[in-house]
Design a protein around this nucleic acid. Structure first.
Lengths: 202, 202
DNA sequence: CTTGGAAGTTAGATGCTCTAACATATGTAA
DNA sequence: TTACATATGTTAGAGCATCTAACTTCCAAG
């Protein structure tokens, strides 16, 4: 959510891209107020439409939130690919970059990051789950390459899990100010490098 | 939230322990439905009182949620102490037990666990923050003892942070079914022991 | 006892979600 | 071009949630 979103003034009866605008408004408001203070009405005010308009695009508030999370995940996935590209496949730099990107994203969009792994009563949203599997697949593949294994075997799965624990833990700790302040001198990258040294020792 | 909570049938006009009942109802409902589907009204129905009653005990819905989280944290802190007691101070068993307790608690009360580190717009609830500091203090102290350091110095802070990353990461991954299933054979304890081996190498 | 305050109640103001019915724009086919 | 079907907006309103005000019940201190 780098792009700031200002209240939209429409000229025509139709919005043009209301669905997109609502998704962005949803993301922005959840970041600002948290999921439990987010309201469809607020998003409507931001987008400059009536409170009934969203229901032409989403079945419910829940579905609108899920759409916001999915959009955020897609953006993040693309960005992760871009961050990884400069680094040689199989290099430690690439592993560290992957972790650092994760931590950095969590700091930039903590609301979306949390929701991505949230409860979602009853319905485990297909799209979110699939995308999670995809990311984890990427992690395993990167670990495989780093370890020089020919396939994703038990060793790779084991190390990938450990790595992912560390990356996730750093992400969450970084989002909580009272814990983020507990990180002794050193950047996230420094810690990720040290951890990958031991976790992925070959 | 081991104790199941059934709808209360009152005999007298006054409830007796409405505040406690509401706190338990809040915890139960948040576990069941998630923070965004929790309503004070539901909690009132569970406790068998009118929807205005809670406002004699809590200023707002938010405050009621915070009270639920604080209560859960207090219970968890006591339980953690009990889990640690049998283990010799300074032993690896004690470190592993601490981590395992954390992961186990996250699995039992994921709703409370998440909220404990959640956003809390505007107000970072004093009580929650203090308790977080207390837990982190305990972690540092245990790491200090394990490493045999005379005081909480830079080395201790560094290792404690790494350990806490791992424990937090395992906790969160364990709560998400799609990731929990990615843990290769081995119990959380096994992984915690391996991680503490390397993270706390002396 | 009496009585003041704590802890309930009902009633209602305000706001949110979501549906129904209606209005307006757009694109395709005649 | 005209006309219609459809997509995408609107207003109105039902139903439920939060929270306050004013009233009631009960306990406990004097």
């Amino acid at each position: 959510m780098a792009q700031e979103q200002i209240k939209e003034a429409r000229k025509s009866y139709h919005h043009g891209d209301l669905k997109g605008a609502l998704i962005r408004a949803t993301q922005q408001l959840i970041e600002e107020k948290g999921i439990d203070h987010f309201s469809v009405s607020d998003a409507c005010r931001l987008a400059g439409v009536s409170t009934a308009a969203p229901y032409k695009h989403f079945k419910s508030k829940d579905e609108m939130v899920v759409a916001g999370v999915c959009d955020a995940m897609a953006r993040h996935a693309a960005e992760l690919q871009a961050d990884l590209a400069p680094h040689l496949k199989g290099s430690q730099d690439r592993i560290v970059a992957m972790g650092a990107n994760y931590v950095d994203y969590a700091l930039r969009e903590p609301g979306m990051f949390r929701l991505r792994f949230a409860h979602f009563e009853g319905e485990p949203p297909e799209a979110i789950q699939m995308s999670g599997e995809a990311i984890y697949g990427l992690v395993q593949e990167e670990v495989r390459a780093y370890l020089g294994e020919p396939e994703i075997n038990e060793r790779v799965r084991d190390r990938a899990y450990l790595l992912w624990c560390v990356v996730h833990g750093m992400s969450y700790l970084s989002m909580v100010p009272e814990f983020a302040s507990k990180r002794p001198l050193g950047s996230p990258e420094d810690y990720l490098r040290r951890m990958s040294d031991v976790v992925l020792a070959r």
